[in-house]
């Protein structure tokens, strides 16, 4: 996700090589604002949910995210609030229809090399092949249909709309993969500020204690 910041760092250097000789992903920035996440939630709950579940996301947590109770009630149907977001199509039926069970989407934003960029590129990756068939340049043999319809979209305005939709969906799935990330970052800022102040004070204190030793001849 944030790999771009760390590339110069040795540690991530090691873990991001796997990408090197694979298909170029699109690196458009993925929004993180609440409005995008909420729009994405609607897309996922109404479109993707026909085939995919999100087994680690309960309907209740959508309320915490700020979605109106009535909306969530429509999405969940007769399932209880503390139920996970289940696919509308039974997994067996989906497997029979597509030849593969649609994977759970809770962790999808972190489960592929490239993270959110993979997700966005995959949703936008559909096109028309040489024989008029729909293909996906990211995952050539994918059994998922082009649900957003990007392969049939020809004019720029339409593509723009689909791209915005895909970004919202990605934003929501990114939230779903780690719902505590917001808390984490906001707490992190305080922790780092606190530690930096402590570091400065300890540095000064150390200087003070060591001043006699520091004045001695170097060994």
């Amino acid at each position: 996700m944030n790999k771009r910041f760390l590339l110069p760092l040795l540690l991530s250097l090691f873990s991001s090589f796997a990408l090197a000789n694979e298909i170029e992903l699109e690196h458009d920035p993925i929004p993180t604002d609440r409005a995008s996440v909420l729009r994405g939630a609607e897309q996922v709950a109404t479109v993707c949910s026909s085939c995919h579940g999100l087994k680690y996301v309960q309907y209740r947590s959508l309320l915490d995210l700020g979605i109106a109770k009535e909306t969530v009630d429509v999405w969940r149907g007769d399932k209880p609030l503390n139920s996970a977001m289940k696919p509308q199509m039974a997994p067996d039926d989906a497997a029979a229809a597509f030849g593969v069970t649609p994977p759970d989407l809770s962790l999808m934003a972190v489960a592929r090399e490239g993270g959110v960029h993979y997700l966005y590129s995959y949703l936008m990756g559909y096109g028309v092949g040489a024989n008029g068939e729909t293909t996906n340049r990211i995952f050539t043999v994918t059994k998922m249909p082009d649900v957003l319809g990007i392969s049939a979209a020809s004019d720029a305005k339409q593509r723009e709309e689909i791209s915005a939709k895909a970004k919202d969906i990605t934003a929501f799935l990114n939230w779903a993969a780690d719902p505590r990330a917001g808390d984490r970052r906001s707490l992190g800022i305080y922790v780092i500020i606190y530690l930096l102040i402590m570091t400065i004070l300890l540095f000064l204190w150390k200087k003070q204690i060591w001043r006699k030793i520091d004045a001695m001849e170097k060994l």
Binding site: N2, S15, V110, G188
Partner: peptide, 8 residues
């Protein structure tokens, strides 16, 4: 831990 815990 707080900002890039997933890099690892």
């Amino acid at each position: 831990v707080f900002f890039v815990p997933n890099t690892l």
